[in-house]
């Protein structure tokens, strides 16, 4: 049984929208050999919905956009889902379809209350198809990946979780 699943979200080849996928991959390297942890890449928010099932806890990582802007690109945001899913001020996660990761988490929280979901987001600068990852997000990726791995490790060991907040 998978105890903790790390889910990288986003779109490859779409600039910063790939950040979640890359961070998950990097975290996977750091987590190699840690029992009970599975690292997967989601193909889209509807896929995320499926991936939220079948694990005791999930660490989601994705690019986000603060509502109305105001968060510097590369800022890492950490939030744990409550009964209502993710708070709106996390921002919209920039999925390739309108049904975002936020909606997937909201639905999972409604259908399976008590399920542990930790979300780590990185503020995107550019999410246009065909562009590379922007410099601020690229710089944030190693730190983000490490935090993802740390969260997964804490969850699998039953250690106290990280704290919600944002970090530029």
């Amino acid at each position: 049984m998978t105890v903790v699943r790390v889910v990288g979200c986003g779109t490859p080849s779409a600039a910063d929208d790939a950040a979640g996928l890359i961070a998950a991959r990097m975290a996977g390297e750091e987590l190699a050999g840690v029992p009970g942890v599975e690292v997967v890449e989601a193909g889209g928010p509807f896929h995320v919905l499926d991936l939220l099932e079948g694990a005791h806890a999930v660490v989601l990582v994705d690019a986000v956009r603060a509502p109305g802007g105001g968060r510097p690109p590369g800022t890492v945001v950490r939030v744990e889902a409550g009964p209502e899913g993710l708070p709106a001020d996390v921002g919209r996660s920039v999925s390739s379809h309108g049904f975002g990761v936020g909606e997937a988490v909201g639905l999972a929280a409604a259908l399976r209350p008590g399920h542990r979901i930790v979300f780590l987001g990185v503020e995107a600068e550019n999410v246009a198809a065909g562009w590379p990852v922007s410099a601020p997000v690229r710089r944030a990726l190693p730190g983000l990946a490490h935090r993802v791995a740390e969260e997964a490790r804490r969850l699998v060991e039953g250690a106290p979780p990280g704290e919600d907040g944002e970090e530029a």
Binding site: D17, R92, V94, S96, G98, G100, G102, N126, A128, A129
Partner: peptide
């Protein structure tokens, strides 16, 4: 609205 792939556009 929740945006599509080129949300900036």
């Amino acid at each position: 609205h929740v945006p599509t792939i080129a949300r900036v556009e």
